[in-house]
Amino acid sequence: MKSFKADYVFPVYAEPIKNGIVTVDDYGRIISVTDYQPASDQNQPLEHLSGIICPGFINTHCHLELSHLEGKVPTKTGLVDFIKQILKVRNGEHQLIIEAAEKADSDMYDNGIVAVGDISNNNVTIQIKAKSKLYYHTFVEILGFLPHNANELYANGLMLLNEFRPQSCSITPHAPYSVSKELFRLIKKYSDSGVKNLLSIHNQECDDENKFFRYKLGKFNELYEFFGMDTSHFKPQARNSMQSIIPLLTSKQDILMVHNTCTNLKDIYFLKRFDRKINWCFCPNANLYIENRVPKINLFIDQGFNITLGTDSLASNTKLCILHEMKTIQQKFPVITTAKLMEWGTINGAQFLGIDAEKGSLEPGKTPGLNLITNVDGLKLTPESKVRRLI
């Protein structure tokens, strides 16, 4: 057994423990979380640490296959120009793509991440995930805005899904602006069929997305022209993008709405009229990288929805680190406590991915991983806070 004592221990399922002690066995399984060392354990070594001990982090949104694009896409261009740049530089030498993804996987491990919800458009990361120390759930992403080829794209998505099996995986639509109603309906039919099929959808990343759905105006028209696409089939919806697609989504699966940069209170209240299992994921550093803004995260608190955190990809972030996301949120929204951010970065993500029986909190019997956060100010994170993996 190993025991660690820190200024604070965040079990997550309970209040932070001052001068807490966490004891684990040789397999990383939690034996106890207390504020004292039992007499029976007095002979066990106790490592004294400065900072906060917490469970391993859960990253619910990543694009491992884009890791080779680190530093290659300009910042603060807005989503439409960001997408164009991605398409220009996405292809690369296969071995370099593999090596970058392997390094990103290793970096996430070192940054205290234990599980990842990862977006895939191809099969390049299958073997990396099979060998990884991290738990992965792969979202096989389908996209296609034109109605006529929905069946073909859906069939291709199912074939890619089969390549990822028996790893944990599901098929999912990319975003409102990139998936036709016909394709949404095919994915809904699959999701309603009784299989377990988590969904992860890029949602309202910029004002132009809502502008296109409401009025068919804005820069998305420029994007479709860039692709040479005829969008005459699309009629303005007179409502925001998320409101437009909610009726097309299943009520039988958990759905992760990712980014939500321009989601407002009306959107949130609209959701409550529907029987949908909505979870939110925030990736603030990617939002700053692309749009130079962050979501109004304070609007989502205490609305009855599960909130999680993600990193997005190295094409839109400088590092794949959940603590990095937590620090940005606390800087932008000082009223959000570290304890609340811990829930978002651990147990909430584990619950969405369906792995909370083992991950997400420091409960006896679990193997959640153990992180030490240093350079803290009591219970507050600071710009200098760092994470070190203990087990």
Rank of each mutant, 00 (worst) to 15 (best):
H61V: 04
S251V: 10
I290Y: 02
I307R: 11
N203W: 00
D230A: 04
I297R: 04
S32R: 12
N197V: 03
L353R: 05
L265H: 14
I113K: 04
L79F: 15
P74A: 12
I119K: 01
K332I: 08
L314K: 11
N162S: 13
P383N: 09
K181Y: 06
K5G: 01
T374R: 14
T261G: 06
D208K: 00
Y13C: 13
L379P: 02
L320F: 07
G345N: 01
I171W: 00
R239F: 04
G310N: 04
D275P: 10
K103A: 09
W280G: 00
P176W: 05
F227A: 09
I355C: 12
P334E: 13
D254K: 12
P55K: 05
R388F: 14
T172E: 02
D356E: 13
S3E: 12
V73K: 08
V80I: 14
S200V: 03
K188L: 01
A357V: 10
L362W: 10
L381R: 09
D207Q: 14
V195E: 07
T308S: 09
F333C: 07
L353W: 03
R214A: 02
S244Q: 05
N123H: 15
T374V: 14
D377Q: 14
Q330Y: 05
L353S: 03
M242G: 10
F282G: 00
T338W: 03
N111H: 11
I391D: 11
H148I: 08
I329L: 12
L323Y: 13
Q243T: 13
K252D: 13
N279E: 06
E222R: 04
E209G: 01
L198R: 10
A6V: 08
L256P: 01
N260C: 12
F213Q: 05
P38D: 07
M1V: 12
K252A: 11
G354L: 08
D110Q: 15
E65D: 10
R165F: 03
I322C: 03
P247G: 07
N287Q: 06
D7R: 04
I297A: 12
K5I: 04
C206Y: 00
L69A: 01
V89Q: 09
E205C: 03
N151Y: 02
I245T: 06
L158F: 00
Y177L: 00
K18W: 05
V124K: 11
K380Q: 15
P173S: 04
Q331V: 03
I307H: 02
Y154L: 03
N19A: 07
T338I: 09
A155L: 10
T138I: 08
